[in-house]
C-alpha cells in the first residue's frame, strides 16, 4: 500500500467513525472491529455505469424496476409466471440474463422486476423487439401504459421506472452467462477425457 492509499483509507475510517458516532454502542464496537478488514482492498473490479442507467461490476449489470400494474393484470401475470414455473425459454435464448425476479408490491398494485444481466443497458432492447416481441409484450404488458416492445419510445418508458441500485456486488464479475456455459462444457469434456485415460 502506498502512502497515498494509506492516507485515503485512514480518512475513510475517520469518516465512518463520524457517521456512526450516533449509532448504539454495540454497533460502534462492531465498526471498530471491522475497520481493519475494510481497509484491505479486495480484488473486485470497480463499479461502473451500465450505460444509460444502472450499475455494472465487471461484466454483470443490475436492473431494478418498480412500476404500477395495469388494472386486472396482476392475476394474468401471476398465473402465467406460476405456469412457467421458472422455465423462461426466451430468457434462455437471450444469453445475457443471469436471473429474473418478479415481486408484486403494495397489495398487488406495483410490480418489482429485478435482473442481473451481461453488458450494457440498451444494447439488446431493439433486438428483443424483432426477435422475441410476443414474449416481451405478454409479460410486460402487466405494466400500466406499456406501449409495446416495438414502440420507438420503449427505452424512455423503461428508464422512467428503473431505480439504480445504491450498491451492487457480483461474486464472479467476469463470468458472463455465455462464458459460464462454455466453462461447463469444457469441464465436462475434461472429465470425459480424464475418465478415458484414468
Amino acid at each position: 500500500m502506498t502512502t497515498q492509499q494509506s492516507n485515503d483509507t485512514e480518512q475513510q475510517a475517520e469518516k465512518l467513525r463520524e457517521l456512526f458516532a450516533d449509532a448504539p454502542e454495540p454497533v460502534r464496537t462492531a465498526l471498530e472491529n471491522a475497520i481493519p478488514d475494510m481497509q484491505t482492498r479486495g480484488s473486485a473490479p470497480p463499479l461502473e455505469s451500465a450505460g444509460r442507467i444502472g450499475k455494472r461490476q465487471g461484466k454483470v449489470s443490475e436492473l431494478t424496476m418498480i412500476a404500477p400494474v395495469a388494472p386486472d393484470a396482476t392475476k394474468r401475470l401471476r398465473t402465467l409466471l406460476e405456469m412457467l414455473g421458472g422455465n423462461f425459454d426466451g430468457a434462455e435464448k437471450v444469453g445475457t440474463v443471469h436471473d429474473m425476479r418478479f415481486v408484486f408490491l403494495d397489495n398487488d398494485t406495483k410490480l418489482l422486476f429485478a435482473t442481473a444481466y451481461d453488458g450494457d443497458w440498451d444494447d439488446y432492447i431493439s433486438d428483443f423487439a424483432t426477435k422475441i416481441p410476443d414474449l416481451m409484450d405478454i409479460v410486460f404488458s402487466a405494466i400500466q401504459g406499456w406501449p409495446g416492445i416495438r414502440d420507438p419510445s420503449i427505452k424512455d418508458f423503461l428508464v422512467k421506472y428503473q431505480i439504480p441500485a445504491d450498491a451492487w456486488y457480483v461474486a464472479n464479475p467476469d463470468l458472463t452467462v455465455v462464458e459460464t456455459r462454455r466453462l461447463q462444457r469444457v469441464g465436462k469434456a475434461l472429465d470425459e477425457f480424464l475418465d478415458k485415460i484414468g
Partner: peptide
C-alpha cells in the same frame, strides 16, 4: 449460431 440473442439485420 450466436451465443447471445441478436437480430443480425438490426
Amino acid at each position: 449460431a450466436l451465443a447471445q440473442l441478436a437480430d443480425v439485420n438490426l
